[in-house]
């Protein structure tokens, strides 16, 4: 404590916005554009940043992170592209089915957990499917600062190649698209071998692709600092469980389709968070007592922490067992 202690509110600062455009891009992906409701400019952001979109779905508040994919130099709009996930917990379905031009929504200030390494002599991007979105902003930023980049983009089919044509037309020599249905595969080993010293690699896509790029780069002698990835983990459904929160002095039930963090919020507990995707560390919570098994799904705690049973990241992780008491 120093001078004028103030209670910190959980999450990043918020911005009230109005949906200014809803643009279906293909069968699965739709772009949403937002203007600030107060008419002011948006804060500048760094490419790779995401925003957490607050959705008012009946009496339920959903909070989902999406990469900002608009040009960071354009402060008049923020844009995200959302892939419909029919098996998911409903956030993307809500966006696709309910959100219309003119709707009022709330975004958080940008948070960047996937930033460009500005020391890089060259940036090589590997995108899989909807993982293209942060690279849209990165490409815009690097084009303005004469950065050296190339993109390798794997999509299922030409019809589902979100932004593939647009990017190929704008940067024919830098963009390479690979279609699964034509049996095209990113020639990862060759690409990793041929890069100049000081190149950084970035990957965003399905877990398998991220692991593949990390493992191949490591096998080819790349330092781990030169390989960057981002994967948002959606909280997975799971069996309901009961948690005792000793600071708040309440016992709560975590439902099948909500995360532990969401359950705490529903019960009025102001728990800290930022990314809601297991990456930022903000929601880290101490375990006071546990009898059962943790289902750790975060990228924040190390293996030792996971094994210790002393910490949990409530935004993505769950618990199966008899008793769980948390210091919250």
């Amino acid at each position: 404590m120093s001078a004028a202690p103030q209670k910190a509110k959980a999450g990043a600062e918020k911005i009230a916005v109005t949906v200014s455009a809803v643009v279906p891009l293909n069968d699965l992906v739709t772009r949403f554009e937002f203007k600030r409701t107060d008419g002011a400019e948006f804060p500048p952001f760094s490419a790779g940043a995401h925003t957490v979109v607050e959705m008012q779905d009946g009496d339920r508040t959903r909070l989902n992170p999406y990469s900002l994919m608009s040009d960071p130099a354009d402060r008049s709009i923020y844009a995200i592209s959302v892939r419909r996930d029919d098996q998911g917990r409903g956030g993307s379905l809500f966006m696709h089915q309910k959100v219309k031009v003119g709707d009022a929504m709330t975004l958080t200030y940008p948070v960047n957990l996937f930033s460009l390494d500005l020391r890089a002599k060259k940036h090589v991007f590997f995108a899989g499917g909807i993982g293209i979105t942060p690279f849209k902003a990165m490409i815009a930023q690097l084009e303005q600062s004469n950065g050296n980049w190339e993109l390798h983009y794997a999509c299922r089919t030409p019809a589902l190649g979100t932004y593939a044509d647009e990017l190929t037309n704008a940067y024919p020599n830098k963009v390479h698209v690979y279609y699964d249905d034509q049996n095209q595969v990113i020639p990862l080993e060759d690409l990793l071998d041929g890069q100049p010293l000081g190149t950084h690699v970035y990957v965003c896509g399905p877990t398998g692709m991220i692991d593949w790029v990390h493992a191949t780069a490591a096998a080819h002698g790349w330092p781990s600092e030169n390989v960057h990835s981002e994967e948002f983990l959606a909280p997975q459904p799971g069996k309901p469980f009961e948690v005792r929160l000793c600071q708040s002095d309440i016992t709560i039930q975590v439902g099948e389709h909500e995360s532990l963090l969401e359950a705490m919020e529903r019960c009025g507990v102001d728990a800290p968070f930022l990314c809601r995707g297991g990456a930022c560390g903000q929601c880290e919570t101490d375990v006071v007592e546990a009898e059962g098994d943790f289902v750790h799904r975060d990228h924040w705690l190390d293996d030792e922490d996971h094994a210790s049973g002393k910490k949990i990241m409530p935004c993505v992780s769950r618990f199966v067992g008899k008793t769980l008491v948390l210091d919250r």
């Binding site: 990043a12 600062e13 804060p43 952001f45 940008p110 948070v111 560390g281």
Partner: peptide, 16 residues
């Protein structure tokens, strides 16, 4: 350090 890595845009912090 954990705290600082998480200082976010629009939410500055301070200490003495």
């Amino acid at each position: 350090l954990k705290f600082l890595l998480n200082v976010q845009q629009g939410a500055p912090a301070r200490r003495l």
